[in-house]
Design a binder for these strands. Structure first.
Lengths: 192, 192, 192, 192
DNA sequence: GATGAATGAGTGTTCATTCAT
DNA sequence: TATGAATGAACACTCATTCAT
């Protein structure tokens, strides 16, 4: 069970750093300290290993996302927590996020792609929460009267963009997080 | 010269859709309607073809970026033009932008990577312009007193995120552009 | 003991249908409902399993061949019984015969090949009986004065050919058997 | 073109001697004096090479079979020529015949199998000729009144069996041919 | 300019087999 | 008896690249 875990760890690392196609099975096995055929004992092949790894990462992501408090406090508090959560994750597990946001899309045209399904699930989940926040916030006089649908898209784009920038340039996360929160606060809150 | 162009076009398409490692020289030659060795007549190899293609795309990008009016009008007008410009580009040439924003970063650790250099050049260029706009706008009382450095990062992240979302989900660009501009306007302008 | 038998049964089936080289140990184990290493518990390896299976089949064949009555009756009756016996066998256990007549000869150059030894034993056995029949029949005026050695070869070839045809085209065995017997009767008997 | 031919020759030899599954691509390439990838330049793969080789052999066989005189002379002369033709072929090109009669049937369950198609074509062709000969011979009072259909099957089985025996035991072909012809003559001809 | 033929190095994968339990 | 985990060697096949023409 140890060696299987080594393989998974190596896969996350190498797939994230070099891409799926750019990583060979022999590289994987060496990085995991095992022999090549063991990949085929534990998984059906290189594709299956990727699938397994992505499933794992998405499960982890969704589990943690579920734990984010999106019920209590003011509406903007909830949005702030969502933004912070994503920037925290990219700081703690940059490779996992990198795999999700860079590694997948290449094979995106394939409709069976788990990444596609998971990214859509993520999109739906976040869209629903953010829509709710915005609507309630507008109704309660907390937010300005912004167009909900497009503003949601925009916040999503902002989150995605921040993750990406951080992955490429390894910037000061807390500062960026605060700047992002303030940026949104000013744009959304009536007394921002 | 025709066949060389075919090769370049095929390379842009295939590298963008399948990634560099995911595209073989035989795929390239077939997609271009030529034979494999011709790649080696016109370029030094597959790597060189990528380099050539990226240089081409970045040149095109920088040339167009240079044509964006960042001198006349109010400061926010300039920022608005920059955002619009990028969303227009992704709509007109999604593959080129996709290559720049997805295809490259995989081999990013390599310091010789042309993509890295070009992306940094782009970053510097945009950062400079945006910094100028923000500083001048703040001084002129057009903008709120926001932290310049991080707000620049944020706008960049927003642009990157919007490009990415559009590439994955092919959304309504004009609407997103307007929403993005309004979002920033509210966040930045004193009387937003 | 049950699982060992399952392995043997699976081996007969798979080796006959796909050939020895065309059958993998994992296919064997799955078809037998056991795990791969069990093959190595009960046999020394894949080769040994083949050897075991062939020995088994040849033993069965020789045992039944021994029970064919080649003593009583006229000489042609004996020959008829031999022909009938082989066509009956191929009808009852086509896979076993198929293994003997198709699966083995491929590695025939190897002198250690059990198949080779067994086929030679079979050849000698049948040759001896048929030679005896022909000689006695000729001496007794039952048969025409045919060249014994070559006629024996011919009858053997006929048997082999009939088995093969039946294995490929699954023809009406009783009819073929009768036709074969009559064909030989006309060719051999003085008052055929 | 020379190296391609070497590959084909090597394939005929090795597939016939060791079977298709028993022959590796590296063996093939070494036996042909070329490098492994050349197989994939000239053919689509190992399967395709087998297909090519079988097509070639069957074409050669059918071409020569077409040249056998089955029109002139008495009916038995025609049958004699067919039997002789096959024994001549097995003497001249034993490996080609071996490939046809041993190598193929293993993959026989596959309906796309060229071998299956070709063997059926061969069967039909020979069946038609032999049926004609027998019918005409019986009508003309040349042959005894034998059951045509089954006697045809029998002669086919005899030919197949002779080929097989010769391939395994490398016997004196001319003697066997004469014995076979005489055997059939006695069985078929009224004044045999 | 352009290609058919060819290759060394490497790909993902399967093989028969072993070993600790 | 029986298996889960693991492996060295080999497998069919593809890679980017070269070269003579």
């Amino acid at each position: 069970m140890n060696k299987k875990q080594n393989l998974i760890d190596a896969a996350i690392r190498l797939f994230a750093d070099q891409g799926f196609e750019g990583t060979s099975t022999i590289q994987l096995s060496r990085a995991a300290g095992v022999t090549e055929p063991l990949i085929y004992y534990h998984f059906e092949g290189k594709d299956d290993l990727l699938r397994h790894v992505l499933k794992l990462i998405f499960n982890r992501y969704f589990k943690r996302l579920d734990e984010v408090d999106v019920l209590s406090g003011k509406e903007f508090q909830k949005i702030k927590r969502l933004i912070s959560f994503h920037l925290d994750m990219v700081q703690k597990s940059p490779r996992e996020i990198s795999l999700i946001s860079n590694g997948c899309p290449l094979k995106f045209s394939d409709p069976e792609n788990i990444c596609k399904k998971s990214l859509e699930k993520q999109r739906e989940y976040l869209t629903e929460i953010l829509s709710g926040c915005l609507k309630k916030g507008i109704a309660a006089g907390e937010f300005k009267d912004v167009p909900v649908e497009w503003t949601v898209e925009l916040i999503l784009a902002l989150i995605v963009g921040l993750i990406r920038q951080r992955n490429l340039y390894a910037e000061n996360i807390p500062a960026m997080r605060d700047a992002a929160v303030e940026f949104c606060r000013r744009s959304l809150l009536i007394d921002g």
